[in-house]
C-alpha cells in the first residue's frame, strides 16, 4: 500500500512539471524577463563600472562578489568536511600480506620507452605557468580563479601520485593543506575589508585607499579576489587528496 502511494506520487511529480513548465520563457527569447531587466544593465555597464572586458568575470567577482566569496567558502567547507569525516576515524591495523612487498618491487616500470619521472618533471612547470596565465587572464578573457586553482591542485596530485621520490619537493600534510584552503577565502574576505578601511562599503573596489585611477582599483580588486579563489581551490583539492591517501586500506591494494 505504502509503496503504491509512493510510486503514484513519484509519477505525478515527474509528469506535472512537464505540463507546468510552459510558464518558463522560450530559450533565447530576447523579450523575456531575464533578458530585459537586470542582464541589460550588466551588458551595457559592465565595462565602465567594473573595467572588466569579460562580462562574466564582472558579474561573478564584482556585481555579485559576495556570493562568490561564499561559494569559495563552500569549497573549503567541503574539503574540511571530507578530511574530518574520512581521515579522523579510528585506524584499523593493516595486515599487509607478504606477497605485497615482492609485488611492489616489481611495480617499477620495466618498459624503457618513456620515462615518466622525467616526463612529469618537464610537464609540471609548464602546467604551473599555464595556471598562472589562466589566473591573471581571468579578468580580461577566458579563465579565472577556479580553473587556475584546479590546475595547481592537479600538478601537486600528479607529483605525489606518479613520481617516486625519497623526499617530495612540496610536502603538504593534511593539517597544512586544510589551513591553506582556509587562507584562500580569507584573502578574499580581506579584500573586502580593505575597502571598508578606505571608507566604503564591503567589497566596494572604488574605495580602496590607493592613489591610482578608479579603473585600476577595480582590476586590483578582481585580481586579489581571484588569487584568493585560486589558493582556496588548490588547497581544497590537496586536502581531499590527503584525506583519500590516509585511508590506507583500499580493497584493490592486495592482489
Amino acid at each position: 500500500m505504502r509503496k503504491t502511494i509512493t510510486i503514484i506520487l513519484l509519477i505525478t511529480a515527474v509528469f506535472v512539471p512537464f505540463i507546468a513548465f510552459n510558464v518558463l520563457p522560450v530559450i533565447g527569447d530576447p523579450s523575456s524577463a531575464p533578458n530585459t531587466h537586470v542582464s541589460d544593465h550588466y551588458i551595457e555597464h559592465a565595462i565602465d563600472e567594473c573595467n572588466s572586458p569579460n562580462m562574466v568575470t564582472a558579474v561573478i567577482v564584482d556585481y555579485r562578489a559576495f556570493d562568490t566569496m561564499f561559494e569559495t567558502t563552500v569549497m573549503f567547507l567541503a574539503g574540511l568536511s571530507v578530511i574530518m569525516i574520512l581521515a579522523n576515524r579510528p585506524k584499523k591495523k593493516i595486515f599487509a600480506p607478504s606477497s605485497l612487498k615482492r609485488f611492489r618491487e616489481s611495480g617499477h616500470p620495466i618498459y624503457k620507452t618513456v620515462n615518466k619521472d622525467v616526463m612529469i618533471s618537464i610537464i609540471e612547470p609548464v602546467i604551473l605557468i599555464y595556471a598562472i596565465y589562466v589566473l591573471f587572464h581571468g579578468e580580461v578573457s577566458l579563465g579565472g580563479g577556479f580553473q587556475a586553482g584546479a590546475l595547481i591542485g592537479m600538478t601537486y596530485l600528479l607529483d605525489v601520485m606518479v613520481v617516486k621520490r625519497e623526499k617530495p619537493i612540496f610536502n603538504l600534510p593534511k593539517k597544512r593543506a586544510a589551513a591553506i584552503a582556509g587562507i584562500g577565502p580569507f584573502i578574499y574576505a580581506l579584500t573586502g575589508f580593505i575597502s571598508i578601511i578606505g571608507g566604503g562599503l564591503y567589497l566596494e573596489y572604488n574605495k580602496f585607499p590607493f592613489p591610482i585611477h578608479q579603473a585600476e582599483l577595480h582590476s586590483i580588486g578582481i585580481t586579489a579576489v581571484e588569487i584568493g579563489v585560486t589558493i582556496g581551490v588548490a588547497g581544497t583539492i590537496i586536502t581531499i587528496l590527503n584525506a583519500l591517501m590516509e585511508r590506507i586500506s583500499f580493497d584493490d591494494d592486495i592482489n
Partner: peptide, 21 residues
C-alpha cells in the same frame, strides 16, 4: 558596516582557525 561585519567575524575566524591552530 555592522550588517556585514556580523557575518564576516565568524566567517574569518572559521577560515583562519586551522592556520592559527
Amino acid at each position: 558596516n555592522t550588517p556585514v561585519l556580523i557575518i564576516l567575524l565568524p566567517l574569518c575566524s572559521a577560515l583562519l582557525c586551522l592556520a592559527l591552530t
